[in-house]
Design a protein around this nucleic acid. Structure first.
Length: 693
DNA sequence: ACTTTATGCGTTTTT
DNA sequence: CGCATAAAGT
């Protein structure tokens, strides 16, 4: 039996070992929220709760995975039976198992962002009088998503958007949305929002399923509760409706997803919705030195505080955070490299450091500087691995193998052949009676016949690869299907479309996909079913243990911590995002900045460049960010970024990239040149997960 | 008619 | 650097 009182402070202990009933854990940044949740789970399992009757809802797969792994260390492999995952993946799972009760096919397909936009684009083109003046598909997607997540009429949302966008009437948006729904039904497909909407509908409309779920789950735990939207809050309320044992964990100061429908009210009103709810506050901050907390507190100084919080610094010592001014983006990037180098000299590992920015494009110059200094880094780009064009191309082929009636995959697949565009693809699909099975010789023959003269020369080799696929499947070796396809066709395709380097890079990604498939272990169908829900952090073989600096958006850094944190681009027009300010969401930007600051354990550096370059080569001055201006001067050490001449990468490389690749980590184990990540960028020994196309 | 290539413009955050 | 649109090419 674990002695939880020894592992936790009194408040954490109270939360982890609480008896039944609703509990709200207000966990300020760095107060051991994850630790508490993990021990809660362990406590429940140790006290006889069946792991499969625990439902743990998170916002990222990574968070779920981390908590389950840590729980496993405490209570053993039983923890693997816990139902843990993102809202989206749990909803998907519910729908796969019980969806038939509300007419959802067991093998429904999941549309990713790109699929959704493609469909919307086609619908707009077909159904709108003048598509040119009509809002772009991204905007339409936003309106539809906003309506679903905030549970409003599309018409209402569209009317509201009329002030921001032009060229449409709300009725037109309603019509496009209806057509989109129709099309999804035809395709037996759901987008991300549909997963939430339909899973909730399932619980509300099917008494049977609601009963099953409510009996099954005796404990429901929700992480990052401040970022739930109305659908998610109701979903977890109903799931916990049988036992009444719901534990919501969150921090209203860290609500950063209102643009995605998150309602800060959900956490604030939780005690009203669950009467008799016990409130436990975690206020002892173990993460950061007092100087960092002082800055964090100053950021939120004037924000109304529904739940009174007294953040207590536990750590002592530490140094003042630095507030730099830099001439421009390049000088900033150089300064970042020299801060990283300085910290490394002081004994920090690369993995102890992170650069956290507001928007992906802020990383461009930083990435360049880090590459030329041979600092190993990982950058999680906006595009997830499974959304890469070339990965999706190959996945389309695999999907057809697993599911011959997958129309979207067919369209993508056949479009790879020369001379085939959207029109030709549609014709072929009709000619093949809306079905193509690469494993069936007759179907292959029909496919070949539907191809034009330009495609014929490459077809033979592809057909051979398809013929071989059947044996591969029989042997349970789906990864080989990918490699066969590459040899027969896709490698040539890539070399035709791209220069050597880019083609090589893309080929590497495709091979990584093959690795991922063989590492997965399940069948092909199971592998393909839900990969749309995985993000760039979720690839099986990603070398999460490799020693590299993290370059990430603040959003993606939520829930994580590093000894050394650098926040660049604290300048007007960059952070806060001008779009958010325009929409009156400065408060959320402030919370986002708060999240960024509170990621730092020991050393925090913030940088405000004074000039901004435009794509056309011009530059103009920018003010310091309001967030930088607001920090009381005595809380930070002002510095000026000194534009050192060109950085000597050579001396650095010895302790940097080189060591990274062949050296030994703190754990004393060797990390060779395999499986650590995706090597990109011409010879520099950088280790990263870069999937920018 | 349809596909491929050239050109111009605008960048939030994610499951 | 990506995407949409326009023009050129088959």
């Amino acid at each position: 039996m674990t002695d939880f009182s020894k592992l936790l402070n009194p408040e954490q202990f109270a939360a982890a070992t609480a008896q039944g009933g609703p509990i709200l854990v207000l966990a300020a940044a760095g107060t051991g929220k994850t630790r508490t949740l993990v021990h809660r789970v362990a406590y429940l399992v140790e006290n006889g709760v069946a792991p499969e009757s625990i439902l743990l809802l998170t916002f990222t797969n990574k968070a779920a995975k981390e908590m389950l792994e840590r729980a496993e260390k405490l209570v053993g492999p039983d923890a693997g039976r816990i139902w843990g995952g993102t809202f989206h993946s749990i909803c998907a799972r519910f729908l796969r198992i019980w969806g038939e009760d509300i007419g959802v096919a067991r093998d429904y397909r999941i549309l990713d962002d790109e699929d959704q936009k493609k469909l919307l684009g086609e619908i707009i083109k077909k159904n709108v009088a003048s598509p040119k003046d009509f809002p772009k598909k991204e905007i339409v997607a936003k309106m539809i998503s906003e309506a679903l997540n905030a549970r409003e009429d599309i018409e209402t949302v569209a009317s509201r958007w009329q002030t921001k966008a032009a060229g449409f009437t709300p009725e037109e948006i309603v019509r496009v949305a209806a057509k989109y729904d129709e099309r999804k039904k035809e395709l037996s497909a759901m987008d991300f929002d549909d997963l939430l909407v339909n899973a909730l509908r399932l619980l509300k409309e099917s008494e049977r399923v609601r009963g099953i779920v409510q009996r099954k789950f005796s404990h429901v735990l929700v992480d990052e509760y401040q970022d739930t939207n109305s659908l998610q809050a109701e979903f977890s309320d109903i799931a916990a409706g049988g036992s009444g044992n719901i534990m919501a964990v969150g921090d209203d100061f860290q609500c950063i997803y209102t643009w995605r429908g998150a309602q800060i009210e959900n956490i604030i009103e939780f005690p009203d919705r669950w009467r008799g709810c016990r409130i436990i506050k975690l206020e002892r901050n173990y993460r950061s030195v007092p100087q960092v907390l002082e800055v964090a507190n100053s950021v939120m100084r004037d924000v109304p505080n529904r739940f009174e919080k007294h953040l207590k610094a536990i750590r002592q010592g530490g140094v003042l955070p630095r507030l730099y001014t830099a001439r421009d983006s390049r000088s900033q990037a150089k300064e970042i490299v020299s801060i990283l180098a300085e910290m490394r000299r002081r004994g920090y590992a690369w993995r102890d450091m992170a650069v956290l920015y507001r928007s992906h494009f802020h990383s461009i110059d930083i990435e360049k500087a880090v590459i030329s200094a041979a600092v190993p880094y990982r950058l999680t780009s906006g595009t997830s691995f499974y959304e890469l064009q070339h990965v999706k191309d190959v996945l389309a082929y695999l999907r057809l193998v697993a599911d011959p009636e997958d129309e979207l995959s067919f369209m993508r697949f056949i479009s790879l052949f020369p001379g085939v565009g959207p029109a030709g693809a549609a014709k072929a699909w009709a000619k093949l009676s809306r079905r193509f099975d690469p494993l069936d010789p007759a179907s292959r023959e029909a496919f070949g016949a539907a191809l034009g003269a330009k495609a014929k020369p490459v077809w033979k080799a592809v057909e051979n690869a398809m013929a071989a696929a059947k044996t591969r499947i029989a042997n349970g070796d789906a990864a080989m299907i990918v490699l066969d396809f590459c040899t027969a066709f896709y490698e040539d395709y890539l070399r035709r479309e791209w220069d050597d380097k880019e083609a090589d890079d893309r080929l590497d990604d495709v091979k990584e996909l093959a690795n991922d498939i063989s590492a997965n272990g399940t069948g092909l169908k199971e592998y393909l079913a839900d990969i749309a829900l995985l993000t760039n952090l979720d690839l099986k073989k990603t070398g999460s243990s490799s020693d590299s600096v993290t370059l990430s958006t603040v959003h993606q850094a939520k829930g994580m911590e590093w000894p050394v944190v650098i926040i660049p681009w604290l300048s007007e027009g960059m952070f806060p995002s001008p779009k958010a300010v325009e929409d009156g969401r400065l408060d959320e930007e402030r919370r986002l900045f708060y999240v960024a600051v509170t990621r730092a354990k020991d050393a925090l550096s913030m940088i405000s460049p004074e000039m901004r370059h435009m794509p056309d080569g011009g530059e103009f001055p920018v003010r310091k960010s309001v967030f930088a201006r607001e920090i009381p001067p005595e809380l930070v050490e002002p510095r000026r970024a000194t534009s050192v001449p060109s950085f000597d990468g050579g001396a650095f490389r010895r302790g940097g990239g080189y060591q990274q690749q062949y050296g030994y980590g703190p754990g004393g184990y060797s990390r060779g040149g395999y499986g650590g990540g995706f090597s990109r960028g011409g010879g520099a020994p950088t280790w990263k997960t870069t999937w920018r196309r």
